[in-house]
């Protein structure tokens, strides 16, 4: 039987991200108690909503063993199209958000078409659409900054029952994604697909449909993420969202999603995004050199990925078949024939 120490180590490895999160909070809290005040914590959640919402969508894709590099460009293009439609049709901001979401769905369908129908690998498809979507967006704006109607910022800075809007959207998406992944047939099939697509097909799962949907979800989430952030800023420039795909993937992986597929949760992505933001804010609070902050962030991501690897190695070694039961050390072991 496993010893107590071993089980404790097991638990630690399994919940490494939570432990790292707790340690980070504690560390910064000790450095600067203001950091743990409700306002600053709420601010962290608000700031993490942008990457967080996109990371929730990315988790779906990573669960299937795929990757979506186009999210940064989708953030930009969807927010832009929503703004243009809003301005042209004089739409209210919530309707604009729906437009952004629909744009995300369409862009996701483009990715899904190449991946599912033409069977090009996700890395290449989304690398290509990363360029395509951004190029299209810049063409639409003629490389100039795009200003949203003033109602946009009012919306972005509003709050519902005292909760800032970005947090409301973030929470709503997290909840929806959690329910879909954990409590619907589609959600469970996403996990099955990531574990073994061929077995999923044989088990009667419509795998093309499952795979297509995750890319649509990822793009839709990225689109809303972009819109929510832009709503707080009120304008959009050509570099918006550039390079964010890596932040989004890092947040999802930090939250326990594996790049090999089959493991990860929506709430994990929320935590991953929040953890990254906590570190960022903490570094600001404690006055660490601005230029050194990314290094510490990188170190934390590294730790989380390392913990994930250790977790998998431990799982695998436990699965190794035992041929003989290992008898207690006392007496000649199993030598009766």
């Amino acid at each position: 039987m496993t010893s107590l120490a071993e089980r404790a180590l097991d638990a630690a490895v399994r919940h490494a991200t939570y432990l790292i999160f707790a340690a980070v909070l504690l560390w910064f809290g000790l450095q600067s108690p203001v950091f743990l005040m409700p306002e600053s914590l709420a601010n962290i959640v608000k700031q993490s909503s942008f990457i967080g919402i996109a990371a929730i969508g990315m988790t779906f894709v990573l669960l299937t063993g795929g990757i979506d590099l186009s999210v940064g460009s989708v953030m930009f293009l969807a927010a832009l199209i929503a703004g243009m439609v809003m301005r042209a049709l004089d739409l209210p901001v919530p309707a604009g958000m729906v437009v952004a979401l629909l744009t995300g769905v369409v862009l996701g369908l483009i990715n899904a078409f190449f991946i599912v129908v033409l069977r090009v690998i996700p890395f290449i498809v989304t690398l290509a659409t990363l360029f395509l979507f951004r190029g299209f967006g810049i063409w639409l704006t003629s490389s100039t900054q795009f200003d949203f109607p003033p109602a946009m910022r009012a919306f972005g800075l509003s709050s519902i029952l005292g909760v800032p809007l970005p947090i409301v959207v973030f929470a709503a998406f997290a909840l929806m994604a959690h329910v879909v992944l954990a409590h619907t047939t589609f959600g469970r099939q996403v996990y099955a697909f990531g574990n073994d697509p061929e077995a999923a097909r044989k088990s009667g799962v419509k795998i093309a449909w499952v795979q297509a949907r995750v890319y649509v979800i990822s793009s839709a989430c990225a689109a809303v993420a972009g819109f929510v952030l832009i709503a707080q800023i009120g304008r959009l420039d050509a570099g918006f969202g550039e390079g964010r795909e890596f932040d989004v993937i890092a947040a999802a992986v930090l939250g326990g999603a594996s790049l090999m597929g089959g493991s990860g949760t929506a709430l994990g992505a929320v935590m991953g995004a929040t953890l990254i933001q906590t570190v960022k804010m903490g570094l600001v609070f404690t006055g660490v050199n601005l230029y050194l902050q990314p290094i510490l962030q990188g170190a934390i991501i590294f730790l989380a990925v390392l913990a994930d690897g250790l977790r998998n190695t431990r799982m695998r070694s436990r699965l190794r078949r035992t041929i003989r039961t290992v008898e207690p050390a006392s007496g000649p072991a199993g030598r009766r024939i």
Binding site: R188, Y191, A192, N195, D196, S203, G262, S263
Partner: peptide
């Protein structure tokens, strides 16, 4: 044809 990341019931 089993999924090791899912439960028996799933």
């Amino acid at each position: 044809n089993l999924f090791s990341n899912l439960s028996v019931a799933e």
